[in-house]
Design a protein around this nucleic acid. Sequence first.
DNA 1: CGTCATTTTGATAGCACTCAACGAAGGTGG
DNA 2: CCACCTTCGTTGAGTGCTATCAAAATGACG
Lengths: 231, 231
Amino acid sequence: MTKAGPAKIPAVGVKPAVPADYPDAFGDEQTVKRALSALRRGPIRFYRDNVIACEGDSADYLFLVVSGVIRSCKTFQNGTRSIVAFYLPGDLFGWTDLKHSLSAEAATDAVVLLLKRSALLSIASRENRVASYLLAATTNELQRAQEHALLMSRSAKCRVATFLSDLWRRLGDAKYLDLPMSHQDIADHLGLTIETLSRTITDMERSGAVKRVSCRRLLVKNQASLALAID
Amino acid sequence: MTKAGPAKIPAVGVKPAVPADYPDAFGDEQTVKRALSALRRGPIRFYRDNVIACEGDSADYLFLVVSGVIRSCKTFQNGTRSIVAFYLPGDLFGWTDLKHSLSAEAATDAVVLLLKRSALLSIASRENRVASYLLAATTNELQRAQEHALLMSRSAKCRVATFLSDLWRRLGDAKYLDLPMSHQDIADHLGLTIETLSRTITDMERSGAVKRVSCRRLLVKNQASLALAID
DNA sequence: CGTCATTTTGATAGCACTCAACGAAGGTGG
DNA sequence: CCACCTTCGTTGAGTGCTATCAAAATGACG
């Protein structure tokens, strides 16, 4: 169904999933890298829309995104889908008790490293740095989840502006903001319809905050007016 | 301003903040208890609406709720307030990097134990059980936050039904569901107005799912129809 | 019993959803 | 290379859910 891109596997680069200024995860990240590489499985390539982990699966592995974008989502009985988070290269995710409460799917063609949970926890029990790193990573994701929950009770304009702004930063403040995922995915992440998302972007374009270069590429013309829509 | 209840301090009971079936936090909880009691400060009594920690404060302490209900919230520039979570007795909260990103306030008169973060992490680095417990606690809270984010993109009816159902369970499935916090707090937690909250409960009463015994006390008449509103 | 905070109910408005159609982009096959 | 098709995104018209504004009812407390 989905067409594949070139199938070359990029080198595994472990970007820290926590802010560099975090005190405990700090110091010898090499230790963590070595520990991780001892128990990794993969890298595994997934094509767009492939399911990486299914809601209800036992959570034997954690996932480290190497390239592409992964969405963590849930589909309800009535067919509605919500995307809780997008994970970008360097992000570690899959924290849960026993079973995954959410599905993980490739939002773009992607490469993912699987890390055996039990082995990781076992290493963590011997290596303080690993334990600190894991705690910092979960804390970091907790904070993201809380901020996202906060976002969901705000206006469509604020949600879109915040999302675009965050994504732009996460992608490294490039000249253009290239959206790696579909509008449908973004809408499902923000609890909006694609129509509302599209209209909101149109409004932002009219107000001069951004400009559509193409469908998936935005030019952030005025970061201030983007930020203005936030809060 | 707020009237105080009787000022007796209950005995410190550490109820596990994670499901009992979690494999790693398991085993010797006594170890954790002893470790915690070695670095605790308090218990401290707060009256309703007292601020326990302020957004932006350095996160030197974690908090363990002994009694009462704590709300973790953020107030926006326009005066809107959102409550990310309520913490009940036994809950451990305050996970964040460096600074609190949310305020913690007493939603009712409450007693809280303060645990020095650095000391706790230091103990965790020597005691695997403590480290596992902390990781399990954050993972557990992460899952709650994600579920709450999911909830926020659903209808008012679903949000209220889910909240009442969850709270009922968390409070121990008593005969009556006594709401410990104000409707305003609940509304701010669910991203609704108090009017919509009230109307939604009225609808649920009309459909026979619950009955108002008094303002703050509900009788869950039909758990099935409550659950029906969910999803 | 009066005052104040809180909750409930009513009327109206607005934002986001739904349904529908059009337009753009990319892939496929003739 | 072009016609066709399919998917995705954009725009428009109308509806519905939830917010807002206003006021009455309930309850707590002195």
